[in-house]
Design a protein around this nucleic acid. Structure first.
Length: 175
DNA sequence: AAGTGGCACAACCGCTCGGTA
DNA sequence: TTACCGAGCGGTTGTGCCACT
């Protein structure tokens, strides 16, 4: 059995308070990101390091774009999902200001349903299996390679209509 | 007004990976 | 070579809100 990422006792769980958010933001502004395991103690937070990391990445980061997804963002998510499958961090990496959690939630609550309504099977539209067959071991660390593969596949798969070959959104999307 | 079902999103959990001693 | 640790990822759960009955 693995050791827990931090001592379960003496750690808060559940929703973050404004005070906790402020402590985390202040600390990261001062010391930068990283060393998540030791951060809570250093910042005076009764939280698990993983929890701090998640809170910062998904909610507190200043470059986050909050609010509804634009139509071209939706479009890009669908296309990337078709290529990459449920590799949310890779997909989010191509959407400036969006997080993997946000993309994942949006997919599960909006886009999946939307595709179903359109008569598209959201699980089978992608080519995840063929990618997996070509690369039986795909790790998080291989995401750069996978990303290149995705771009390669798009270029190669000329049959796929209306694909954004750059697979990125510019930063000047109107909010 | 109260109950309830569905939705949206924040947060947690367990696993894997890469680095390193 | 291997065992350990920190970081990151994706799946899942919890919870608050809102619309509907």
């Amino acid at each position: 059995m693995r050791k827990p990422c931090c001592e379960k006792k003496d750690t808060n769980k559940g929703a973050w308070s404004k005070e906790e958010d402020q402590k985390l933001v202040d600390y990261i502004k001062k010391h930068g990101e990283g060393s998540w395991r030791s951060l809570p103690q250093a910042a005076g937070l009764l939280r698990c390091g993983k929890s701090c990391r998640l809170r910062w990445l998904n909610y507190l980061r200043p470059d986050l774009k909050r609010g509804n997804f634009a139509e071209d963002e939706e479009d890009l998510i669908v296309k990337l999902h078709a290529l990459l499958g449920n590799r949310w961090s890779l997909i989010a990496g191509r959407l400036p200001g969006r997080t993997d959690n946000e993309v994942k939630n949006y997919w599960n609550s909006h886009l999946k349903r939307k595709l179903i309504r359109m008569g598209i099977n959201p699980d089978k539209h992608h080519v995840r299996q063929s990618i997996s067959r070509q690369h039986p071991v795909i790790s998080h660390g291989k995401k750069e390679q996978l990303s290149k593969d995705a771009t390669f596949l798009v270029k190669k798969t000329s049959g796929l209509p209306d694909l954004n070959l750059n697979l990125t959104l510019s930063n000047n999307i109107v909010e």
